[in-house]
Design a protein around this nucleic acid. Structure first.
Lengths: 204, 204
DNA sequence: TGTACATCAGTGAACGCGCGTTCACTGATGTAC
DNA sequence: TGTACATCAGTGAACGCGCGTTCACTGATGTAC
């Protein structure tokens, strides 16, 4: 069958989109070309009409996933008053829903460690998107000078990513929720000292 | 050949030890049974005299790696005055040396995300070791009540693990060093506000 | 102490299987006339 | 407008390869006598 001009692009985009979900769910090596094509309603033979190799698809799918994360953050920011945007992104990131649905979540905690071991090409493509994320987060810190904002954004991201990794190892129970909660404090810079408790006013 | 009583145990231990290095370096699926046996100076056929399956070795190797990390932390703590132990562990963890040598480093940033996708048996074994690590870190916070200490320890760990993941994605350049530096602040609870700079005393 | 035997850690060929990739083919649609 | 042809996205069989696992075998050493 021969289709209209845009048809191939649509198919290509559909493969990338579905792959980005399944790769985040099952790992960068956790699903094969045949199954990825099946996800998009196709058979494996047509794969190489769209991609030079499996790796090329993975690179595209990762970029897609990272862009979706940035977009989501932008939306959260747009719906929040400026001084609360940074915290709003952190809070929306560190949720049980995100933890329990890696397929539609951030690619960094799901695939970052694996990607760091892949080809330089892949690692660098991923690193470039990561740097965009750092900048995005830094943009939300109004009134903080650039270098400090970048540092704080990076600090928060380390806690955000680490928290998702740890909470997923812990599963979905109490420990996992504790990790989410502690990670929120770390990302918001409240992790260093024992949290102040609301104290009952002492009778004199 | 038949060997002395302890010989099999020694061989078993050697396989586990070498595997723990190579698995951290190459990922939980990044190296095969034949190569792992070769690492230990053996051929692949003998593998099943020592392990019920590849997965069984991976579980043992992960436990071994996690125990080595805990041991290392204990040593750092023992060599440091009590009030500085927590920070000393964080500082010793977030170094370029650790970043650049995952094979001899902490298994959590190297393999955590992958393990979270493995069989429940494997994930739970890993989670148990992770909880031990949290307790270890909490033990270093002298004078902080238990629940708060655990929370702070968990918060620091999220930043520590996230920092290694991010810095490894970034490679070994400037961005990667920036991430290490920002991660140190996050883990020590200084990530929330712009760092105070040493100010020159103003002339009156 | 010396000898025959039993043991079993380790060897290496072979297995079945799934993977990424290739390729000859199909057939619906765009295009030239 | 209608028709013959060219295109090429997609199909499905086949490929070579590496993997985890199995198995018949080996031979150095511990043990029984």
């Amino acid at each position: 069958m021969r289709y209209s001009k845009e048809h191939k692009q649509e198919t290509h985009a559909r493969i990338v989109k579905r792959a980005s979900v399944r790769l985040r769910e099952k790992g960068a090596h956790g699903i094969g070309v045949a199954d990825l094509m099946k996800e998009a309603g196709l058979t494996h033979g047509g794969f190489y009409a769209h991609f030079a190799s499996r790796e090329a698809l993975v690179i595209e799918a990762l970029a897609y996933a990272m862009d979706r994360s940035s977009e989501r953050w932008r939306k959260v920011a747009a719906a929040t008053p400026p001084d609360k945007r940074f915290a709003a992104i952190v809070e929306s990131y560190l949720t049980p829903v995100h933890r329990d649905d890696p397929g539609h979540g951030c690619a960094v905690p799901a695939l970052g460690a694996e990607i760091a071991r892949e080809s330089p090409k892949m690692r660098k493509a991923f690193a470039a998107k990561l740097e965009q994320m750092i900048d995005m987060m830094a943009d939300q810190l109004h009134g903080v000078p650039r270098p400090a904002a970048r540092k704080q954004a990076t600090a928060a991201l380390t806690a955000m990513i680490g928290t998702l990794v740890l909470s997923r190892i812990a599963g979905t129970g109490e420990l996992s929720d504790e990790i989410l909660s502690a990670g929120r404090e770390a990302a918001l810079g409240r992790g260093g000292r024992p949290t102040l408790r609301k104290q009952r006013p002492k009778p004199h």
